[in-house]
Write a protein that binds this DNA or RNA. Structure first.
Lengths: 220, 220, 220, 220
DNA sequence: AATGAATGAGCCTTCATTCAT
DNA sequence: GATGAATGAAGGCTCATTCAT
């Protein structure tokens, strides 16, 4: 006769369970059976509420992205006119917290990272929606920092240098590859902040070096 | 005259085909059927030569690692007494070429990267054999560069900053996320060298900044 | 209206079909495909209801044993104080009917016999549960009949003599090795009863002879 | 370039290995790979020398039967005019040794028993050649012992009673179901002889009882 | 005579999905 | 809205057999 939880409830439980499992095992290793089990629901529930595993995954992605964006906006609350150095720091801070802050974001970070490392072909569109904006913001900041004479290649290289310092750390989380102070279930806010500070320091120095090189080339 | 190539040949063709498919699709999405099809061989061939899909994957991993290491040794041919700056440059150069140089290495880099992002549980041991040594070498160089007073955390952060600039780029290869000059089937040697140079420049500056901060803290 | 019989039905049909096929062909030669075909069901049905071929086989074994025991209790309804001669007759009667009475027991007997002749390693536990109790009961009766001075070896030999007269007949059923009056699909109750009577007569005489021999040895 | 063992050798080694494996695991659980492994030969050897697994099995059966018959002739070396009691004893003795005497017969007994319990359809003809003669001899002896007035059913029942006491024991050998004195790799000749003596004693008494019953029925 | 390589048919199982209630 | 049953496509693996040497 079933316990009526009035739709929305099961829907949310599925979304939550799916987020967890997708984060833990990735898209292909996740079975809808496991999701439903963890949601204390039944095998057919996913298809009932989301039509297919694919659609559920998209829903999870959108949810993860939306949530991440809401809690940690890429500008870190800074006005667009703030100095590029500060904007870079804020962005790095934001990205890191998206990934590492289990406390507030659940598994959103893990899923985003998985998507980044091994994007499911089918969901490229969603993927683009998520990654591209981040990239655009970053591009603007970098341009400001290394000056107008940089070549396209130099800009791309710099974006990569900065952004992957932030992203890559997530790949190792929860797999025992990291020193304990980074691999605890909830890396403390202090540690994340310390990492953000490091990356900012490191990157600003790197970017300065690139800028100097560019200017040296031009003045010669 | 065909059909009978007496062992070694089929073995190699399977290994090659498997490397390609594993690189393209990852472990789970790869079917032995596709591997065999691409090797112009029979479905049972994999089990005959490698006993199982798992063992084939391990063989691919070992082959990829071995080949990568042989062609691009981590020291880049430099003696251990060379200045740390040069050793860092050589290491970055070596890692990048391992990943990006399709021409010589086939898909070794892709596979190693996949393993890094999403290690298959079963093969963790192999994985450890591959990643740990790289990490150890990097650790030594970094220590030399940021000085003896660095905390453990600072060293780890720096290793990450450097190593992930190198590794992460591979995640995006062949997926249309990169500007054309980096995403061509064979990124030209020139481009790879340019990238290596960039990362070295960027990282040395970053490391210097970290060293200065450490020394400032100590002298105060 | 078909197709949807809501669980129990398909479960039973599978169990029935499996019992038949396992009885006819033995564990190894039975394919789940054939079972499902005969149950007018889908290949995946076995795994849905029983998880695996192995579990299905265990279920069949338990079912066969349970049914056999329920319909033909080993004491034949006799009180424990009845004379050993009568208890032997009742036991023989019960065992024979378990094996031969197709009408009521389906293929339970065949399967039990197959298990006896060629036990599948994996299912030894189940097998033990089935055979051991029978043996224990028989042991008690035999002891009563050949007297307290029998050696262990003599008891074992006698148990074998009796029990295998009962069991072995099943091996030949349905294979054209038996005269028609024993090999008809349903051996008539009369024939079975006649056989039971024969074995009882034969065995009691045999046991008497053993007892006499024992006593002669002692009195000398 | 191969070590030429001149045909016959490999042939024999295969036959021996096959006998062992078939005895241990039965026809269907035996793989030609295992046979060849145990014969220190290669996978193709079976098909080369015997054309197929089936033909190899037939060869094994014939070999086992021939050997068994040669070493233990069913008449036990007794002339046809010897008293039926003695001929029964000799036959029982012969059958038991065929089955139990590992020392001389290798696995012939096990295989014959397996064939008896679960005859492979394909090989029924061979099977008939082996079992029928034994049965005929037994029939003659039984007839002599229970007299000319026995019905067909009574004779069949008696044959079964006697023969299965002999055969059935083999089913349990090597499976831990038997007391140690019967389950040792080589049951000593003494034990086998003791068992033969028991079965003879038991059966003669049983047969006498049947005879008396028949005569009582007639004289009434 | 003998062998290692290669093959294809067949088996058990998994899984996303659909159906009937 | 929710569910357990049912399905079929597909995957990995085993194995007797055949091929080329």
């Amino acid at each position: 006769m079933a316990i009526r939880k009035d739709g929305v409830d099961t829907y949310r439980k599925l979304l939550k369970a799916a987020s967890e499992v997708f984060a833990e095992k990735g898209y292909r290793d996740t079975t809808v059976a496991e999701i439903c089990r963890r949601a204390h629901s039944n095998v057919a529930a996913v298809n009932y509420h989301f039509d297919s595993k694919d659609e559920l995954y998209i829903a999870v992605l959108k949810n993860a992205f939306g949530e991440a964006l809401r809690v940690y906006p890429p500008d870190g609350g800074l006005p667009a006119e703030a100095p590029a150095e500060e904007r870079l720091g804020a962005l790095i801070h934001s990205v890191l917290h998206r990934i590492l802050d289990d406390g507030r974001l659940g598994c959103a970070g893990q899923i985003l990272l998985r998507e980044m490392a091994d994007p499911i072909e089918t969901f490229r569109r969603v993927h683009e929606d998520i990654v591209r904006p981040l990239r655009e913001i970053m591009l603007g900041i970098i341009r400001d920092l290394i000056g107008p004479d940089a070549t396209e290649q130099q800009i791309v290289f710099c974006v990569m240098s900065v952004i992957h310092q932030c992203l890559a750390i997530g790949f190792r989380k929860g797999r025992g590859h990291l020193p304990s102070f980074l691999d605890s279930p909830q890396s403390t806010t202090e540690t994340i902040d310390a990492l953000a500070e490091h990356i900012t320091l490191f990157s600003l120095a790197g970017l300065s070096a690139v800028r100097e090189k560019i200017e040296a080339a031009f003045s010669s």
